[in-house]
Design a protein around this nucleic acid. Sequence first.
DNA 1: TCTTTAAAGGAACGATCAGTCCAGTTTAGC
DNA 2: GCTAAACTGGACTGATCGTTCCTTTAAAGA
Lengths: 207, 207
Amino acid sequence: MSPAGRPRAFVIEGVLEAAMRLFWEQGYEATSMAQLREATGLSSASLYGAFGSKQGLFERAVEHYMAGPGSVTDVIGDEALSPREAVARMLHRSIDMQTDTSHPRGCLVALSGTVRAPGDDEAAVRRTMAARRATDRARIRECVVRGVATGELAEETDVDGFTSMIHGFLLGVSTQVCDGAPARDLHAAADAALAAWHAPSARTAGT
Amino acid sequence: MSPAGRPRAFVIEGVLEAAMRLFWEQGYEATSMAQLREATGLSSASLYGAFGSKQGLFERAVEHYMAGPGSVTDVIGDEALSPREAVARMLHRSIDMQTDTSHPRGCLVALSGTVRAPGDDEAAVRRTMAARRATDRARIRECVVRGVATGELAEETDVDGFTSMIHGFLLGVSTQVCDGAPARDLHAAADAALAAWHAPSARTAGT
DNA sequence: TCTTTAAAGGAACGATCAGTCCAGTTTAGC
DNA sequence: GCTAAACTGGACTGATCGTTCCTTTAAAGA
């Protein structure tokens, strides 16, 4: 069971936490192995031995992010909630997380790998992050579909359009947070985005 | 009047166009001077002589962008239009521009300088782009204020919140476009974002 | 035509990049 | 205690980064 030889002297989780914060704050490209070495206290050999490459470390760091701060969006999969409530909670929790000053601003997934940079690993990173964003989008879409099914949303609702509106707003929040937008404006904005989505028990028109 | 000495043999506009496309496609950091030299056909000396630095060239390229493709958002300042119409046109035109395949995807301003990278010029680029985004935001806010004044928007509208909703969506469009979102979904999304904003002649409540 | 001025071409700068390799060290199993 | 395995620290690689410098070339004003 236990692999023979000298066991590693560092805790993987701690390394991933430090790497995540660095990538989160500076992005994939702008973060150098030298910075990662300093932040983790490890040598090149240890890092490459454990993660294979910078890209490998990044992907593990993103997984660590998804299991940590990034997990706030998981509420959207809670089928015990009404679809509108699920989306609303997802947006507000994400805003709270992104504006939390105990870690870097914005969302690591929303901000990484948008622009197409040259180089093999850059392209791979871009694909990975685009895939993660596509997952988020699919989960929002599922809620919109449920919303139409439960009657919260009008039957003639453009599902993909409405999904793009919610997802677009969520993605834009990251940029706004990076630019210093106050949390309260963003919470109010989330409410405004959902204004067209009536609460399950709400009347169909008027106040 | 005419400066003595040998005149430059290249057209500034052409160089800016090439540089703009490169920065647009790859971002500031990922674009190297070697690529810029190749794309413009100029030598280091010519580029540095004309623009001073990579950062200087970038800022000129951004100005060139703002005067070209980026000018689609200028409709928002057209006071002859109703505030809602101005915002609607701005969103739809921006979506058309960003999905136009005759140039790189997305919006150069929305995608550049979000994450805080180390280095002096990186920080300067980030500040510059954040300022440009702040200008966009201010112009949207002005429309929202006008909307409340004209009665298109309810008097109790949270102005900053509503502004953040519109601006957040606009910023998020760039990421979606980079990920390959179809234009039609985004146009439908823009309509959905504006659903809460009744047309000027619309009734104040109900259908 | 001659002088002045600046653009153009291209080699070269130190710094930094991701990644590799080699001793040296420490542990698990026998 | 011994052997084998794997981690550790640090020097090191070739490539590329943005930028500078120097020489050559060409056009404007006198």
